[in-house]
Design a protein around this nucleic acid. Sequence first.
DNA 1: TTGAAAGCGCTAACAA
DNA 2: TTGTTAGCGCTTTCAA
Lengths: 336, 336
Amino acid sequence: MTSPTIYDVARAAGVATSTVSRAFSNPQRVSAPTRELVVQVAAELGYSPNPHARALTSRRTQTIAMVVSDITNPHFFEIIRGAELRAKASAHTLVLVNAEESPRIEREQINRLSRSVDGFLLAASRLPEDDLVELAGSHALVMVNRQVPGIPGVVLDQREGCRQLVTHLASLGHTSLAYLTGPRESWMAASRWAAIRDAAAEAGMTAVRMGPFTPRVTHGAAAADAALTTGATALIAHNDLLAIGVLQRLAARSVRVPDDVSVTGFDDIFAAELCTPSLTTLGGTHVNLGRAAVELLLEAADAPRRPGAAAQHLVLPSQLVLRDSTGLARGRRGPA
Amino acid sequence: MTSPTIYDVARAAGVATSTVSRAFSNPQRVSAPTRELVVQVAAELGYSPNPHARALTSRRTQTIAMVVSDITNPHFFEIIRGAELRAKASAHTLVLVNAEESPRIEREQINRLSRSVDGFLLAASRLPEDDLVELAGSHALVMVNRQVPGIPGVVLDQREGCRQLVTHLASLGHTSLAYLTGPRESWMAASRWAAIRDAAAEAGMTAVRMGPFTPRVTHGAAAADAALTTGATALIAHNDLLAIGVLQRLAARSVRVPDDVSVTGFDDIFAAELCTPSLTTLGGTHVNLGRAAVELLLEAADAPRRPGAAAQHLVLPSQLVLRDSTGLARGRRGPA
DNA sequence: TTGAAAGCGCTAACAA
DNA sequence: TTGTTAGCGCTTTCAA
């Protein structure tokens, strides 16, 4: 009933337990013939190493945890998928944790898992920067969609992406935009606003920020109402979910999109292509975000914190996807 | 640097290590005063139990694995979310595994994790029933959206749901339907077809099955083309993704929905509400599926396999959501 | 290159 | 109720 151990294999193969151990975890330190013998005997007995016993001494678990700020946001799906893919390729296990938009829960979950994983992927972390720096001192950490000095991370290029987005709106004749911002703790929200504001200034547009709004469809109504008071003809929602909610509210209020106002989102989730009108949005290959993040984490876990070596920051390209929710500004339609 | 162990706590509190151990894993077997002392000393020292050492002796890991047949399908998201929620409530960790629609990968992943988790949630498993029964002999198993005799499981009610769906179509005057079926290994696909066929017979409709089709948007084109050859006026796609692909293809071929044909899906994913026309679909609260599945698994892990006690099968209600993709059959429009 | 042996941190008899 | 003690299965010095 109970599964075979290295002792069983050692006895059957006529070698010491340490040799069996090496054959599995350090193959190059065993002669080829012995290794083959051990491996074969192990296979016959149906032996496989006990990961907990292994972790107990070696302190390596072959497991990484991914903490997402809000698992209900479909945009994380792609990141999770990429991470799972990459983790599997290196025979690592992916643990999934939901922080439910709460810094407290995020912290608790990290503490709970700190002994059972080799490192953490923190996606859109809501923790204050100080906490993160402290954590990075004792754990392998990789940030996803957030930049923290000294901690490795992967982000989609917001600066360039937002510039393209704003330029697109400017080229349609819009002269004023409103950014409907996300959660206060969201690094992304701050980063997007900074990029949008700068790009707007450059393009000679006025830009205002409204919010914060919880980036869900249901909160789009409030966001849309707030945005309309500004008189802006271009609305940039913090993400696609919020944008879709905005679209729905505008339709309900008989404001035409894109004839009266243009609306854009971020993330390019699956639904962005299907809603009416389809949504212009700043996307990118989120699968690669997840993939790259795991890659970085595995490196960090292998070569822990060479002091002096700067933390790696990967910036993956974002991609502006033009659809039907953006159009010429009011009064700019028809032949000039 | 290295974290404190029960030895440190025992010494500082002046008790035996076993007392410390009990205070944490079996509190009721320690007198209240001793327990409080131990807990307080432990807190001061910053002690927390090493999960691997714990697992090594107790064989309990506080971890459960969820294996999904295809992580790209958004419908699993909700199930995953429910499972994560419930797992967290019992201080359990959720490991996420993608089987990529491959029975081989599914099996490999299960084997790889078999030592590190307390049990498995198998969502839409593609494994043959024999394999599952064998697995259930050595592991705690709960099936999600698949019924296997002798193994506990949770499903949304297909029989009643499909009956409602078919009745809905019949009441709109449709007399022939086509079911665009999912993967060959999908228990769900077989189960839906059986229910649809029976319900159709009951309602005096003819029913044909086409496929199998990979249930993704991109495969909707082939499915739509195949369906049109049958002359059926009502198309039931295996899931919403396929249905959305069908809608797109029909639009491209200038077949009007629902004027020329009606289209339905399964799952009620987020996008079903947003596509054009919005999709009539058989949904249900998938979050509860995940939640209930974890619940069952925790029970099973606690009271392992009382022989004689039948495996629990939970059937959660499904819910028919009527939207714009279904309408009166051709020739049944206007005043009678 | 291989073997002997001492733990890793905890649980669970068993005894007191 | 508490303490003693022998493992759980593996890795890792250290010696040979």
